[in-house]
C-alpha cells in the first residue's frame, strides 16, 4: 500500500514529527511505500540543515534525510509556510525539496491513505 503523510508540527516541540517518522519506518518495514511526506505549518522546521540537537538526543532532521536516501521517500516542504519561517533552498537538509501545496493535494489523490500528524 502507498501512504501519504502530512506533518504539521515542528521537531522537538511536539511529538508529531516523531510519531510520523516511526509510522513511516514501520510502514516501510512491512513492505509498504511512503509516497510522500508533506511538511506544512511549523512542520516545515523539520527540514532545516541548521538543526543541531545535543549529542544524546535524536536528530530528527537527519533521520528524515536518511529515509529519503534509503527508501526514496519524497520529502516536500510547503513553499509559503517555509518562506514565512526562514526556510529556503540554501538551508534545506538533503532529501528535502520546497514546493507548493499542490503536492499535498496530489499526495491525497495518488496515495491509498493520507495520514495527518500534528498538534
Amino acid at each position: 500500500m502507498n501512504f501519504g503523510i502530512l506533518v504539521n508540527e515542528g521537531p522537538y516541540q511536539h511529538q508529531a514529527a516523531d510519531s510520523a517518522y516511526l509510522f513511516c519506518k514501520a510502514a516501510l518495514a512491512k513492505g509498504h511505500q511512503i509516497h510522500r511526506v508533506f511538511f506544512y505549518h511549523d512542520g516545515v522546521n523539520n527540514s532545516t540543515r541548521l538543526t543541531e540537537p545535543p549529542q544524546d538526543d535524536r536528530n530528527i532532521v537527519t533521520r528524515w534525510s536518511k529515509l529519503a536516501q534509503d527508501h526514496g521517500v519524497d520529502l516536500v516542504v510547503c513553499v509559503a509556510a517555509a518562506l514565512r519561517r526562514g526556510i529556503r533552498d540554501d538551508n534545506l537538509a538533503p532529501g528535502f525539496r520546497i514546493s507548493g501545496l499542490g503536492q499535498l493535494v496530489e499526495s491525497g489523490i495518488q496515495a491509498d491513505r493520507l495520514v495527518v500528524f500534528g498538534d
Binding site: M1, K30, H32, R113, V116, F117
Partner: peptide, 17 residues
Amino acid sequence: DYGGFVDLVAEHRNCQS
C-alpha cells in the same frame, strides 16, 4: 505497536486525525 498502527490505517478505508 507502530506496525499495528500501520495495519490499522491499511485496514480502514479512510482515517481522520
